Simulated scan of single mutants.
Amino acid sequence: MPSSERLVLRRWREDDRAPFAALNADPEVMRHFPDVMTRAESNALADRLDAAIEARGFGFWALEVAATGRFIGFTGLSVPRFDAHFTPAVEIGWRLSRDSWGHGYATEAARRSLDVAFSDLGLTEVVSFTAVENTRSRAVMRRIGMTRDPDDDFDHPNLPESHPLSRHVLYRVTPEKPDETAG
Rank of each mutant, 00 (worst) to 15 (best):
G104Q: 02
S97E: 15
T68H: 03
G59Y: 05
A66E: 08
R70L: 09
L49A: 06
P88G: 03
L77R: 00
R48H: 10
R48Q: 11
A46H: 08
T75W: 03
V65Y: 08
G93F: 01
S97W: 14
V79T: 15
D47I: 10
S100H: 05
R81S: 12
T75Y: 13
R56A: 06
E91N: 13
R48C: 09
R81C: 05
A52M: 12
F60P: 02
A84K: 07
R95V: 12
G69Q: 03
D50C: 08
F71R: 02
L63F: 12
R48D: 11
W61Q: 06
R81M: 10
R81P: 04
A55N: 06
W94I: 01
D83F: 12
L77E: 04
D99I: 05
F71K: 02
R98K: 12
H103V: 00
V79W: 12
V90F: 13
D99Q: 06
F71L: 00
I53Q: 13
E91K: 03
R98F: 01
G73S: 01
F58N: 02
D99W: 01
I53A: 10
S100D: 11
G104K: 04
H85E: 14
F74W: 15
H85P: 03
A46Y: 01
A89Y: 08
A51F: 01
D47V: 14
F82M: 00
I72L: 02
A89K: 03
E54W: 08
A51E: 14
W101S: 11
W101Q: 11
A66N: 07
G102H: 07
I92T: 13
T87D: 00
D99V: 02
W101F: 10
F86A: 08
A55F: 04
W61Y: 11
E64L: 05
E91L: 06
L77W: 06
H85Q: 13
Y105C: 05
A46L: 15
T68F: 09
L77Y: 03
A66F: 03
R48N: 09
V90S: 12
E54H: 13
P88M: 07
L63P: 04
D99H: 06
F82P: 00
G104Y: 03
I92V: 15
S78W: 14
